[in-house]
Nucleic acid binder design. Structure first.
Lengths: 131, 131
DNA sequence: TCCGACCTTGACACGTGCGTCAAGGTCAAG
DNA sequence: CTTGACCTTGACGCACGTGTCAAGGTCGGA
């Protein structure tokens, strides 16, 4: 029933203990405490930390992550479908739409950068042929 | 030949003058100065500010934006294709790939949120039919 | 001429996602 | 029993993107 301590969790997730404590303080993960007062994390928490780090590096805030984390599969506890409040659903729909808008902006600009690089390559190849 | 001052630029771009000065301090936009020492912005700067704000709200940093901004079309000065340094090209390729990775992460998680919401809706409709 | 609206730079403050160090508790190995 | 590796909380600091306020210069209109 005992899981892992914060050092092992952080190491396996490729994070620092500071980051793990920060995620816990923000309510993104939870821990049990033994008689030690040491934090005890379940195995599923490892996947959550990895997912949190992925989303953070994708530019999302911990608040947004906290909103959407409960409905992301990953290796974790079964997803809850019962007793979901209408406001929770509304919040999720807003976040979904905000994610879609963000994806659209990033895709459009990524494509512009890619097109620029393609044009650069085309010109350098043409210069090589004619020069 | 005179363009607009910072107040007009900010208002038309839906930004604060503080933000505009910050973008200029970061080298994302430039201005000429009159005898006033007042900033004088070209019309094209408006489009750039709008693009900067779009990219910032999509989660990119000003450093990344500074890297990719020169090759985004938008209403602005003609794109430069000549004399591009190899290190600039390499940097752009890295940023393009990082954007692609970010898009992939966001899309995967957006889809998971959408699937969860779809499942919620399916269950509520089923409950309505059977109840 | 004076007021009000605009501009200037500079500085302080905040929230976020951390790094880092301090001061102390726990625990197994020697 | 001591050492050292781990844990605890707390605090200070930093970079970023902004808000906000201060103290002053510039200007056009009453």
């Amino acid at each position: 029933m005992i899981g892992m301590r914060i050092g092992e969790l952080a190491a396996r997730a490729g994070a620092s203990t500071r980051q793990v404590r920060f995620y816990e303080a923000k309510g993104l993960i939870t821990s049990r405490r033994g008689a030690n007062n040491y934090r005890d994390y379940s195995e599923a928490t490892l996947g959550r930390v990895q997912q949190i780090r992925e989303l953070l590096s994708a530019g999302l805030s911990t608040q947004v992550i906290a909103a959407i984390l409960p409905c992301l599969e990953s290796p974790r506890d079964p997803i809850v479908f019962e007793g979901v409040l209408p406001e929770t659903t509304a919040r999720l729909e807003r976040e979904r739409d905000r994610l879609t808008a963000r994806i659209e902006v990033l895709t459009r600009n990524r494509d512009a950068v890619a097109a620029y690089l393609d044009e650069l390559r085309r010109r350098s190849e043409q210069a090589e042929r004619s020069g």
